[in-house]
Design a protein around this nucleic acid. Structure first.
Length: 255
DNA sequence: ATGGCAATAGAGTATTGA
């Protein structure tokens, strides 16, 4: 079984690329972020025709998340329970006995801004939700666009980004707090090398110049870790015409 | 320091992203 995450930056624009990637990658479950469309416009019919189940939590223009799966999806929860938020950033569901939490973490704009305060409060709420979910589910995966580069080896120019949004101590502390719940950064279980990125700015030929950040992640608990055989970032779709600025991240399970 | 690029809403240009 393979589980992936991908921030597609508009599912309307990227639908054909998503379908193409699903068929090439042999992925079973795909968590999507930044759909940027209302639920009424989710391409459920197209995906169903191709044999995929889908659940989605969308909104107009911004945010929006979904889980697409070859296998049946059950026990769907939208948003973070008991956290007031009009932005659609979370959808959680069970597939093949694995609890899958798809998140689009707040960007935060700049340190000290109102959006940054929202980011920190949002991550604290997520922490509480993950804590409860870990108690309720044996196999658990938290995946999506975290908008956090966990350490300097995940940043193309650590000096330039030092203390900036996505790299600040406050954000990295909250990342560590999530790991302390008993989660593993699946990519780092298999790849210790630096300069492995999942996002590149559209500007300045950043992808070609290998100027990126690793901000899309798959965190797994011990039960999933035991059956995980690999984690990879697929940079191929970033070479497409009109690509998303993010690459998919995928884990392979013996399951 | 600023803008570069892309998507959206909506008809100019502003907002957001990371």
């Amino acid at each position: 079984m393979q589980i992936a995450t991908w921030n597609v930056n508009s599912l309307k624009v990227r639908l054909s690329q998503v379908i193409d990637w699903l068929q090439k990658s042999n992925c079973d479950v795909l968590a999507l972020q930044e759909l940027k469309l209302d639920n009424a416009y989710f391409p459920e019919t197209e995906l169903k025709t191709l044999g995929y189940h889908c659940v989605f939590n969308g909104q107009k223009t911004y945010n929006g998340v979904a889980i697409i799966s070859k296998l049946p999806i059950s026990d769907v929860i939208c948003d973070i329970p008991n956290y007031e938020d009009i932005q659609k950033r979370v959808i959680t569901a069970t597939v093949n006995g694995v609890r899958i939490m798809c998140v689009y973490v707040v960007n935060g704009e700049a340190i000290g801004s109102e959006k940054f305060t929202y980011k920190l409060s949002w991550l604290n709420a997520l922490h509480n939700y993950v804590t409860a979910s870990l108690q309720q589910h044996e196999k658990f995966a938290l995946l999506g666009d975290f908008n956090i580069a966990p350490s300097d080896i995940d940043v193309y120019d650590p000096e330039l980004w030092d203390g900036k949004i996505l790299c600040s101590a406050d954000e990295r502390d909250l990342w560590q707090k999530l790991l302390n719940l008993g989660l593993y950064d699946s990519y780092r279980l298999f790849h210790m090398e630096a300069k492995q990125y999942s996002w590149w700015d559209y500007r300045n030929f950043a992808f070609k110049r290998k100027q990126g950040l690793r901000i899309d992640h798959i965190l797994i608990n011990d039960a999933v870790k035991k059956i995980t055989t690999d984690c990879a970032i697929d940079t191929e779709p970033r070479k497409n015409e009109r690509p998303s600025d993010h690459a998919p991240v995928i884990i392979s399970l013996n399951h």
